[in-house]
Every structure is written in C-alpha cells, then in structure tokens.
Design a protein around this nucleic acid. Structure first.
Lengths: 332, 332
DNA sequence: TTGAAAGCGCTAACAG
DNA sequence: CTGTTAGCGCTTTCAA
C-alpha cells in the first residue's frame, strides 16, 4: 500500500542502503545512481517514514514546548520565537499548554520524553523541586524560557527582571513621586516576588522612601483586576503605577479614568511587556519591553546547541530590556 | 542504557507481550502478574518508547496543526481550542506557522505526513487547487478550521460568514443608516470577498441602497490600517462602520476620535471577532462573536471521529454566531 | 561506491 | 491468561 524504501530499492535495482543515502543527501553515491533513484522516488511518490527513521536513528527532529497557555499573547509571542528558530534548524514542535499546573507539567514532560523529542523548551512561573529533579534526570536537553530555576542547574534565557523593575521605580522616584504603587502578578511567581518586588522595595529604600504595603497589590494579570487594583489603591493616592503587564495596565488606565484621573498629569503609569496593546491604549503606554519573541528564539537556538553537542558559552543567558517611552509618563 | 520492554520482561519473568499488555491496560492479564510487572516497571524506571510504538502500531497519537501565525490572537485562540480537545483524546499536537504562504503550507503538509501524524487540522484564508489536491490524496484525515474549500471536498468547521455580515449590515440599515462603510481584511480571502462583501452588497441592495465602492476599504487586518481606513473614509461621511476584526476596529475608533467624532453618536461601529479586546476598547465594541476557540475544538473533535472511523453526520459543520452588543452601537 | 544484515523498541496476530 | 514470532520502515556498521 504505502511505498517504502524497499520498493524504491527494488524498482531502482539498488539496495535500501543506497536509497537511504540518496534520501539523506549522503555524498557517497555516484551521480548516475543518485539520479536513477531520485527518478524512482518521484515516480512512486515515495515519502520517507519519519517514525521508522526516528526509531533507527534515535533522532526525531522534533522538540517539545511546554508553556502555560498559548491563548495568552505573551506565550504566543514566545512560541512564535521558538517555532521560527526551530523551523530554521529543521525541527518541528510539539506544543502543549500546562496552565501552570504542576501535575500537568510533570505529565507533559513524561509524554514528550516518551515521544523521544530531541529537546524541550519549558516555561513556567514556578519550577517546583520535583520538576527540577525530573528535568535534571531528563535524557534530553531542556532549556527554560523566561523562567527562573534558582539553582541554575538547567539552562535558561531571561532578562534582568530585577534591573528592569529597579529602573522603573528609580525613574518614578527621580520624577519626584513618593507614593508609587506596584500592581503585580501573582507572588507565587518567583520573578514577581524575588525579583520585581525586591527591586521595588530596594529602589524605595535606596531613596529613603518607606515601604507601604498598601501600595502593593497582587493580581492575576487580567484586565478586570487592573481596574479593581486602581480603585483599591485610590484610597492611598499613589501618583505613579508600576504594572506587571499591558492588559492589566489598560485596566489600571481605565480604572483611573473612571475615578476622574488624567494620565499622565495626575498619575504616571509604566507597564511591563510592550506588546502591541501598549500602542493601542489611550494614552499609549510607556512600558518595559519584555522581549518574549527573542527569549523564545534564543532559547531554541540554545537548545540546538545542546542537541548538537556544541560548546555552550553561557548556560544562563540574560537578554537586554529597554523602556519604551509613550504617553502614560510625562515627557521632558 | 535506556530500559526497554525487553528488560522489564526479563526482570519480571514474563514475555514482552505481557508487559505490552500491562502498559496498554489490556484486561487479559492476571492481577498478580500485572502487579509484578508494574513493580518492575517502577523499579527500572521504564518509559515506553512512543516512536517504536508508532512504528509497530501505525498510530502516533499526534496530530498536525497548520495555522497562519500563532502570535496572532485569533489563531492562538483557535490553537487552544484544538489543543484542549486533542489533550482530552490523548493526542499531542505538532504546531506550525504557515504565514499563509502556499509553498510553506504544502511543505508543512508533506513534513507532517512524513511524521505519520494521525490527522491534520488546517487553517488558511485561501486553499489553492494544488493544496486541495494534496489534501484529497492525503492518507490521513484533514479538517479545515475556519477555512473555506468551495468544493466541499474536505471536512470543515466554520460559521455562517454571509449570515453574520448580512445581519450586521441589516442592523445598520434598520437603524436608519444610509452610508455604511465596510473595513475589510484582504479580498484574497474567500471569506472576505465571497461571503462578507457579498452579504454587504446584497443587504444594501435588498434595502434599495446603492452600493458605493468608496465606502469599502480593503486592509491588512492591522490596527494602523484601521486608523488609516477611518481617515480615508471620512471624505465620504459614513455613519456606520462594519469592521473585520477587533484590532482594526480599535484603529477605526481611534481614527474617528482623532477626527473629532463621538461614538456611537456620530457613527456606529460593529466589529467582527469579539476577543477580549472588544471589552478593553473605549467605547467598548459591539462585535459579531466569531467563536475561534469553538471552531478549533469542534474541528479537533471532528478529526477524532475521522481518526476513529466513527460515523460522520455532517462533514461541513456550521457553528452559530451571535452579535454582542456594547457601547459602539446605540442601545434602544 | 555499493550491498547485506542486524537491529531500533514495540505491537499484533496466533497458538496454546 | 500468557508466550512466540514476525514484522513496522529505516539507519548503520561492516564488507566487498
């Protein structure tokens, strides 16, 4: 029924090995033979079976990608970065959503290893010790994308979360703000708690401003919670808002709008993400550019190095960030 | 090195077949034997090799998904729908971006068939005849998600694009509008040209309103082009705008705002997508709810039926749409 | 430059 | 309920 390498070999009067060489662009084939084989392949409509190839060669040219949720634009951007580089190196991607559920993550890891992927790109706000343990004993290389593993045991690609947050708060302080709100994503995420919040506190401390826990709101990264946060914070009259992502920032903008505040005159807002939403907000959002696409791309590139046993210069890659100035902050 | 089914069989003093039965939850195994095998599996850390399994069984429990661009929220939503149902049926997904490039689409199809996927979900605005030809001779079932194949040769899941567009225009007409603009996506897409535009023309004709080509703008579905379109159209003073997606609608809203127009008093706007952006716009957007997630989910479900040789009631599925009323149209 | 042959790790009859 | 035995379609030594 389906035509196999054997059929091609028979028709072309050569051995399977020769057909295999032709298909794999091996140089050790006489041009005339190659041509003859190619012709038969064409005639028969032969299509190499990647599964059989994978079993024999122990390489599937497929990598696993485990992310929280592809319908969230941040992760979608990351996924696109991963896929583009994967395609460039001729890998395909098995994509799965974990919803940040640890059991699902463990199970996905297991499934992908079972499918013999050549490597895995993993993203999650929190890497439990069990997950870390499993990753370390993985027979296949793993790269963390935009995720922190405190032990630095697993390769990863991130930006300087602390530095970016510190710079934002410092900027507010330099502009004369004393009451600076921090509308954060969940503190279960190490990035939010051990990096951004820490930077927030230390930037305040370095400027001699006392930390006020009323000015910090932990949210679930949604638009509605951004609106809520703005209203909750109103009682404490902050004049500057540092918000963890664009969607929530728009929520803050709208919440503030409902309270009659004008941005940036009454309060300045700096977001953290810089997706296309930042330009679609009114006023447009000043935002820390969090390069998700690049993180994905670099993660995948790093993974190819592991898969090819290339030398790794740095296992923990830190990408640059920048702050994109727009209308939600005052321009000098 | 890696532990195989043979190692387990030897340790447990049973045959490979028995181990296979245990692993595949086959009932024909004595509980005691099962337990013994399970224990050895645990001890040895045996993990079934899905590639070998795929070669032997001719099933990979993997389906291919070919979409234009995962970083576009519409397709991301679709992908999530597909993945959720796939997971439910224990399939994994190989996800690839085609960027609507026909050669890439053909090549991806080829690659996925080579990888022996059990089925494919495909999405593209235009299905060329060559693509159609390849799909028809695919040894593996294919379902089109949110894509039109005029010949109806391939199974598909869509909504009634014509009906939805007709209803929007009719609604505008009933509200007394005479100059109704249509800000469309590319007319290379059959959905835009043969369904939406057709409905727009026919709704006007049915109401005795003459078609004015100046009121139709073909765009590339982006925010910036939405702004542009609003400005271009201004010369013809439309009082109603039917826009092809949320991002572009927000562009129109902002373009109109810059021209000093108030929505919905000066002009009404109805979008087509109803993503979360619709609620984040100001004013919030009335929008045709285009159920991408559902289209993905139903496509995948339909695909499982083909993969399991279940009976198919309808090959061309049409899902319902509805119009979500918000502030960009006048409320009665 | 080419071929023969031995697997890769598993499933699926078939037999008992 | 369990074991034996062929493959699945390809890569990869090893020889020639």
């Amino acid at each position: 029924m389906t035509v196999t390498i054997y059929d091609v070999a028979r028709e072309a009067n050569v051995s399977m090995a020769t057909v295999s060489r032709v298909v794999n662009a091996n140089q050790n084939v006489k041009p005339a033979t190659r041509k003859k084989v190619l012709k038969v392949i064409e005639e028969l409509g032969y299509r190499p079976n990647a599964v059989a190839r994978g079993l024999a060669s122990k390489k599937t040219t497929t990598v696993g990608v485990i992310i929280p949720d592809i319908s969230n634009s941040m992760y979608a951007e990351l996924a696109r970065g991963i896929e583009d580089i994967a395609t460039m190196y001729r890998y395909n991607i098995i994509l799965s959503n974990s919803d940040q559920n640890e059991n699902k993550e463990l199970q996905l890891l297991e499934t992908m290893l079972g499918k013999q992927v050549d490597g895995i790109v993993f993203m999650s706000d929190v890497i439990s010790s069990e997950l870390l343990y499993e990753m370390q004993r993985s027979p296949t290389p793993i790269v963390l994308a935009g995720s922190i593993d405190e032990s630095a045991a697993i390769a990863s690609v991130n930006i300087d979360y602390y530095g970016a947050a510190y710079e934002v708060v410092k900027k507010f302080i330099d502009n004369g703000h004393k009451k600076i709100a921090f509308v954060s994503g969940p503190f279960t995420s190490r990035i939010n708690k051990a990096y951004k919040l820490k930077a927030y506190r230390e930037a305040l401390a370095d400027a001699g401003i006392e930390f006020d826990e009323n000015l910090v709101v932990e949210c679930n990264n949604t638009y509605d919670e951004g609106i809520e946060a703005a209203k909750t914070l109103a009682a404490f009259e902050p004049t500057a808002y540092f918000v963890s992502n664009d969607e929530m920032s728009i929520g803050v903008l709208h919440g503030l709008g409902e309270l009659g505040k004008t941005i940036p005159e009454d309060a300045e807002v700096i977001s953290y993400e810089n997706s296309k939403l930042a330009r679609m907000a009114r006023p447009t959002l000043t935002s820390v550019a969090f390069p998700l696409y690049d993180i994905g791309a670099v993660s995948m590139r790093l993974l190819t190095k592991y898969m090819n046993d290339e030398e790794i210069e740095e296992k923990q890659v830190i990408l640059p960030y920048r702050i994109e100035e727009r209308q939600s902050t005052k321009q000098e």
